[in-house]
Write a protein that binds this DNA or RNA. Sequence first.
DNA 1: GTGCATGCAAAGCGTTTGCATAAAC
DNA 2: GTTTATGCAAACGCTTTGCATGCAC
Lengths: 156, 156
Amino acid sequence: MMNEKKCCSKGALHGRLKGCGYRMTLARQAVMDVLSDSKEHLSAEEIFNLARKKNPDIGLTTIYRTTEILSSQGFLHKFDFGDKRARFELADSSKGHHHHLVCTVCNKIIDYDDFIDEEVKLLNETQAKLGKKYNFKIENHLIQFYGKCAQCAGGE
Amino acid sequence: MMNEKKCCSKGALHGRLKGCGYRMTLARQAVMDVLSDSKEHLSAEEIFNLARKKNPDIGLTTIYRTTEILSSQGFLHKFDFGDKRARFELADSSKGHHHHLVCTVCNKIIDYDDFIDEEVKLLNETQAKLGKKYNFKIENHLIQFYGKCAQCAGGE
DNA sequence: GTGCATGCAAAGCGTTTGCATAAAC
DNA sequence: GTTTATGCAAACGCTTTGCATGCAC
């Protein structure tokens, strides 16, 4: 069994970036490493602070530009959880499809992949029907549940 | 059959605001009227421009404060369609449950209520299961499909 | 008359952009 | 050596806040 934790090796990243006309840089590697080490959905500023520990010269602007590129190339997924900042996670193909459960108080986010088979099946059907009826070329969907996590619900 | 187009009469709005310790003002009425007349999902600035026609002295700040209050009291629904600004619609009880289809190019939004019976049913089941498993008090959900509308898909 | 609501201006905050420098190739 | 990537500072756009004035009650 392979012990491949990361979605793609440094070499693969390098190659794929090159294939799109991008260069492989320390900053881009740092962003991938930070997201690879963390299993959270990090904001640009969080990535910045973590990347800084490895490379103190990195700038926040670079994080924005890098996450933009890496997202557009499919290395990262970009999410909006309603807390007014974009959040990113590695597009790790070893992790299957998942949806999110968002605490509206503390912003804790739980990725769930339970019960989603039916969900995804229905989603695909709906997507097909909607696409046809409204003549929309549907490319993506968003499902999130909002509520209060155990801690935050308790204290109320 | 009643010819009641608005979700609640001015009297009802007045009473319900009062019940929460809020006063009935021209600005609050204007925001409700604007949203009542439009069937779109309006941004704060759009509401501002329309409300201005009825009352030129109104300020954008008031729109922000008013939509905040009216949303929190359940008169309005607040949405985020990914275009970096909040959008509002009347919480009109005569309109049933609906979800959204969002064009990622021109930001056109289609409310659909087709095919959602099954969707809502599954959602409720999932919500119950997730709530139990993760000890979350789920209060809300978001479903949106993203893609390109007929016009925007054609021109590409 | 009292206290909430308003308008204006300024500040906040995440994000983007311009430009000179530095690094990848 | 050439071209892309970076860092810094400034600008941006939506939203929020401070404060004196105005309006609902």
